[in-house]
Computed example of a mutant assay.
Amino acid sequence: MRHRTTAAFVFLSAIWGTAFVATKVGLASLPPTLFAAMRFDIAAAVLFGFAFIRSDRLRPTSRTEWYPIITGGMLNIGIHHAFLFSGQAYIDNAAVPAVLLGLIPVITPVLTRLTTSSERLSAVGVVGLVLGFTGVVVIADPKPEALLSSDLMGVGLVLASAVAFALGAVLTHGSKSELPFFSIQAWTMLIGAVFLHATSVALPWESFAGARWTLDAVISLVYLGVVAGAGGFGLYFWLLDHIGPIEASLLEYVIPVFAAIGGWIIRGNAIDTNTVIGFAVIFVGFLLVKRADVRRELVRLRERSRTAASDAD
């Protein structure tokens, strides 16, 4: 299970890192909240298809089963993406959203103390979080004037999206449901999509007529809906259930690394010294937060090596 969660963590970081590049491409042609809504229309359709094939029950039947669906759909999908996509439309410098979302791992431990969540972070873990956030800032390399001049409205919206995402993770963690996994995720995506469509309709500056359906916009929408939406959020909620909100929030420290790699592969952006240094700082922060797991793994490997040596003798 440890290796499975590690693989899922890295894979999801790669998916959501490249999603930043796809989002920027789509926002050039599509209204932001409508873009987010259609992304989760696609994600919900894909997941309902999987649920129909793989699950023995599609519909929630109790308040206990509806709670994580409505909470996750409204906060992690709806409110988070309404704020995030709208904020990104105001901000030209892609480094600014990366830094602001890097606050999610810092916000999450604070929110856990305001809920019934039993997950806590030690003093050394706090140092690890601070180092991780420092690494994100180094990779993003935002100029001080960018944080101040990128429309204050955009900065506020992205910061609000970070709070909404962290709160959704904390409130849904530990929720018990007998509804099959694919059914839960399908309904969560649908709740989020409905909220985003309602928000888009309510915004006077957004309209379906304002969308320009370029090939790049369609490709980015499909990628965000199928891969980053259906696949990515399904993987995220699986991770949340297995490692908890604090450790799952550390995704925001690895995503910028893959965003930089994705920008290099897709758009030809150079990977500079800041990216390498930032990744090293993030890695040290990870080791501090995950030091107990790393120590257990080293002990296990040492014992396996001794056993192998004894058997050879």
Rank of each mutant, 00 (worst) to 15 (best):
D216W: 02
G174M: 03
S117V: 07
I191T: 15
I107T: 09
S122V: 05
L196E: 08
F208E: 11
V124Y: 00
I107N: 11
V226T: 12
S220K: 04
T116C: 11
S161V: 01
T172H: 00
V137K: 11
L103P: 10
L121G: 09
A94C: 01
A169G: 14
V226D: 08
H173M: 00
Q185H: 02
A164Q: 06
Y223F: 14
M153E: 00
N93M: 07
S177G: 09
T172I: 03
V170K: 03
I184H: 08
L100T: 05
S149R: 08
A164Y: 04
L101W: 07
D141A: 14
T115M: 02
T188W: 01
D92M: 10
S175E: 10
L147H: 05
L224E: 11
A98W: 09
V124W: 12
D92V: 06
P105R: 05
A198Q: 05
L215T: 14
G102I: 02
M153W: 10
P105W: 04
V137D: 03
I139P: 11
L157E: 01
S207G: 15
V136A: 04
E119C: 02
A160L: 14
A95I: 08
S207T: 15
G128C: 04
L121Q: 10
R113T: 08
T214I: 08
A186V: 03
A228T: 06
P180K: 09
H173Q: 07
A228K: 13
L196F: 12
L167N: 00
